[in-house]
């Protein structure tokens, strides 16, 4: 399946992009698996996720737990804990 991946704030700066579209291997079906797969590509993703252990995720613009399922066409976002207000 293909998913759009968004990065925000410190993570966006660390990976050097705010958006990428990826075709995922069949085994990558959850948020946590996607994070692992992105990191398996090496730097900067491996370093960024290692340096920022509290990274949160959203699927289709709703907060998502690590075991949340992905689907073809999903918009998956990774970001540090929020600091608005």
């Amino acid at each position: 399946m293909r998913v759009t991946i968004l990065y925000f704030a410190a993570l966006r700066e660390r990976v050097g992009t705010g958006r990428e579209v990826c075709a995922l291997p069949a085994a990558v079906t959850t948020v946590d698996a996607l994070k692992g797969w992105l990191a398996s590509r090496g730097a900067p993703w491996s370093e960024a996720f290692a340096e920022m252990p509290r990274i949160r995720a959203a699927v289709d613009q709703a907060m998502a737990r690590p075991d949340a399922a992905l689907h073809d066409g999903a918009e998956v976002a990774f970001f540090p804990p929020v600091t608005g207000g």
């Binding site: 925000f8 704030a9 410190a10 959203a58 907060m63 976002a77 970001f79 540090p80 804990p81 929020v82 600091t83 608005g84 207000g85």
Partner: peptide
């Protein structure tokens, strides 16, 4: 403060930081 996706970056005399 805990659920809306906003992030603050501030600039100080030592530079910018999240």
């Amino acid at each position: 403060k805990t659920e809306a996706p906003f992030w603050k970056k501030e600039t100080t005399p030592a530079g910018a930081r999240w």
